[in-house]
Design a protein around this nucleic acid. Sequence first.
DNA 1: CGCCAATTCACCCGAAAGAATGAGTGGGAT
DNA 2: ATCCCACTCATTCTTTCGGGTGAATTGGCG
Lengths: 140, 140
Amino acid sequence: MKKTIFLYGLALAVLILIMRVIEYRFLVRDLTLEFYIGIVAVFFTALGIWVGLRFTRKKVVVIHPEFQFNEKEQSQRGISKRELEVLELMAQGLANQEIADKLFVSLNTVKTHSSNLFSKLGVSRRTQAIQKAKELNLIP
Amino acid sequence: MKKTIFLYGLALAVLILIMRVIEYRFLVRDLTLEFYIGIVAVFFTALGIWVGLRFTRKKVVVIHPEFQFNEKEQSQRGISKRELEVLELMAQGLANQEIADKLFVSLNTVKTHSSNLFSKLGVSRRTQAIQKAKELNLIP
DNA sequence: CGCCAATTCACCCGAAAGAATGAGTGGGAT
DNA sequence: ATCCCACTCATTCTTTCGGGTGAATTGGCG
């Protein structure tokens, strides 16, 4: 990212330098101002197009839109990190006891988390929670 | 498409017009040439970015490979139609009782179906069954 | 017709899940 | 220092699941 910004800055600097040179030449040769301006306009239009392409090309390449977590829903519903962990394991088909073992907590804790999770998701069963969570992009 | 080209042409015409006006004003007020050129450069850079974005902002079509039922798995595992119905409703987060109501059968029947389903899928919990069924393309 | 598979249902029992409640602890913010 | 919140855990109780078993029925097929 920093490299990208640096490259853009460098490109701009080079362009400004070129502009100066062009300016000097044209002033010396005493060409019309309109022509000079036209050159500059074309130049910077090209630069703009280039920049525009750079910024958007990547989006086209991404064919398979991968899962992207919906932070808004998480914060709006007040779902904590731990609850999310439980949710993910739940979606993997693990039983509460297995989740407890995996998270190194007690079964009761997992039950508490899942219970809170259900109320936050507005559901009453784990299968529904999984469905809902996928709809809300909380899990892949 | 023609509308787009027309719009671009129009935009360019307007920009040239604005350029002329700016040019006039700056010449009259006798400001520095560098400043004037800077304005033009920024202007056309913006134009270029805009054009670049317009031309490349292809809608990222979500290639969501549509579900296509895996008949082979169904027959190989000997899963009946009724069992599949139960599976689908199960994947929708319905409880056995709700499935029973929806299919107009008794709770015990649903239990039998789901039980047979689990053994055919090689799982022991409904959440796992849903996972597995999705992997096997038995449900979307 | 007799066989088979699918479907339906029942009963029992243990395990798991879920609801409700209370409570202790530790880290962060005020 | 105090308060809040996430996290933790426990207990009790009810509901739901899931396994196991047995059995009646129905429709298709040889």
